[in-house]
Amino acid sequence: MIDKLYDTASDALDGLLKDGMTIAAGGFGLCGIPEQLIIALRDSGVKDLTIVSNNAGVDDWGLGLLLQTRQVRKMISSYVGENAEFERQFMNDELEIEFTPQGTLAERLRAGGAGIPGFYTRTGFGTRVAEGKEIKQFDGVEYILERGIVVDLAIVKAWKADRAGNLIYRKTARNFNPLVAASGRACLAEVEEIVETGSFDPDNIHTPSIFVDRVVQTISEKRIEQRTITERA
């Protein structure tokens, strides 16, 4: 029976890394990020990376770890305002950013994983996002052409996996993960729990095994980015 389980995050990355590669990472803020695979990426020393991820972590956690070590050349992201090292590198032209609205980023990953090289969207029409992009009218409304994203390596965080690589996410930690998984020529998943293949109800699987190449069980810290300070409604 197929078994995609690897012992450690480093083992799971073995043979898949090369300088200059493009990596997509799941997560929104620090929620649902493949935190242990990011640490293993840092430790591998792979560099000149293009990273596709909604956010760039914080200074000392998540993708911020790869910024600290200057392993990232370019980010394709929608919101990167919460990371001082990111800001410093961006202002010194050490780091490039491909500015992408959040929904467009999600759809670019979905399209890439689905074999669709481009799509038209209204999002960003008439703004800086549209600069240099093809505009087309449908039914009298203008849309901009956006490209699908296919990456060399996808890294995701799920709640549970079976040995075949079927994944189940938990609550809002799902976010970009299923889309990132499908966008990768290879996909690694870090999960909290491994079950025997056949244990999941097929009706409840979020990412089918075909999208996942390797699985590693990790212990997640699940850091919280913003402590809730608002009063109860």
Binding site: S77, S78, Y79, V80, G81, F86, E87, F90, I97, F99, P101, Q102, G103, T104, T123, G124, T127, R128, V129
Partner: peptide
């Protein structure tokens, strides 16, 4: 300024 719009344009 870092370009960072999140989901507002969508």
């Amino acid at each position: 300024d870092i370009p960072a719009v999140g989901g507002a344009m969508d």
